[in-house]
């Protein structure tokens, strides 16, 4: 396969990955890395480097749209970014010391977990005001069911901070946005309302990915001829996916994609286990 055909295939595949990622809410990286590694037989280090770049592009590109919805909480996001960026630096450090097979297996497990989280019900429990939430100015409001402004506070801030460090490590190790772990930290631990946690998480993903992308770049893990079609493909795919999300009912589609991602996860674990990556 020559470079032209290869680039066009990668462009098409990345477009699909971006589309799937935005429709399932899991992000382009979760489909992209298995696709590059298993289908195109790209070394997983290059795949992860290219994926990190696409994660920054989709997170930053959609930020303006998310802000318009106006639920994200910058202070919570910024505070937790201390944890995610430190974690991301650690994850990038781990990436050179973890054998390729290990990376593939961890990737598969995180994929399985992400699918599980995306099918969890979110029932918002409103946390009463408390000392730390007040002190760190994390209280906010969001439009509730009948359009009435609903006040919220957060709890277990240190627990959320720790989980976010974990999300950062996974992001730096696997080249994904690790949105599922971020939602776990904000939704399940800190009890931030779902609308607020999803938009804040999207805002944080780009910053987290930038922290490890710089390290990957200087190590020479970001190959221009690979990352260019990936970045452009994923960006177009995810913007298209975001438009589709607004227009159509995607519940049945999401179900199909979840099954696809479930099998991708098993495939990654299997190939990692037998050393075929």
């Amino acid at each position: 396969m020559n470079a032209l055909t290869f680039s066009l295939y990668i462009l098409g595949g990345s477009l699909l990955a971006g589309l799937l990622g935005s429709l399932t809410g899991l992000g382009g990286g979760v489909v992209l890395v298995p696709m590059l590694a298993l289908l195109f037989k790209v070394d997983i280090h290059y795949a992860i480097g290219a994926s990190l770049i696409s994660v920054i592009a989709t997170s930053s590109g959609s930020a303006a749209a998310y802000v318009r919805e106006g639920f994200s909480n910058i202070r919570i996001g910024m505070f937790l970014e201390i944890a995610t960026t430190l974690g991301a630096v650690g994850g990038a450090w781990l990436a050179t010391r973890t054998p390729t097979r290990g990376i593939a297996i961890v990737f598969g497990l995180v994929l399985l977990y992400s699918v599980y989280v995306s099918f969890q019900r979110h029932d918002d429990e409103i946390v009463p005001r408390n000392k730390w939430s007040d002190h760190l100015k994390m209280n906010g409001t969001f439009p509730g069911h009948d359009g009435v402004e609903q006040k919220y506070s957060v709890k277990h801030i240190s627990g959320g901070f720790g989980a976010m460090a974990g999300a950062g490590i996974l992001s730096g190790l696997l080249g994904i946005g690790s949105g599922a772990v971020k939602v776990l930290a904000m939704d399940h631990i800190m009890r931030i309302p779902f609308k607020v946690s999803t938009t804040t998480s999207n805002f944080m993903i780009g910053v987290t990915a930038a922290a490890s992308a710089g390290i990957y770049f200087r190590r020479g893990y970001i190959d221009p001829a690979l990352s260019a079609p990936v970045m452009i493909g994923v960006l177009i795919g995810s913007l298209f996916g975001a438009k589709l999300l607004v227009k159509s009912k995607v519940k049945p589609l999401r179900m199909i994609f979840a099954v696809v991602i479930f099998f991708l996860a098993l495939e990654m674990i299997y190939n990692g286990w037998v050393g075929n990556v």
Partner: peptide, 23 residues
């Protein structure tokens, strides 16, 4: 890149950190 090198054969199977000129 595709105009000048479109016909070359890329190899991404083996990992060998890219040239310092590009990083």
């Amino acid at each position: 890149y595709l105009l000048h090198h479109g016909a070359s054969i890329p190899n991404y199977h083996a990992f060998h950190s890219i040239s310092p000129m590009l990083r």
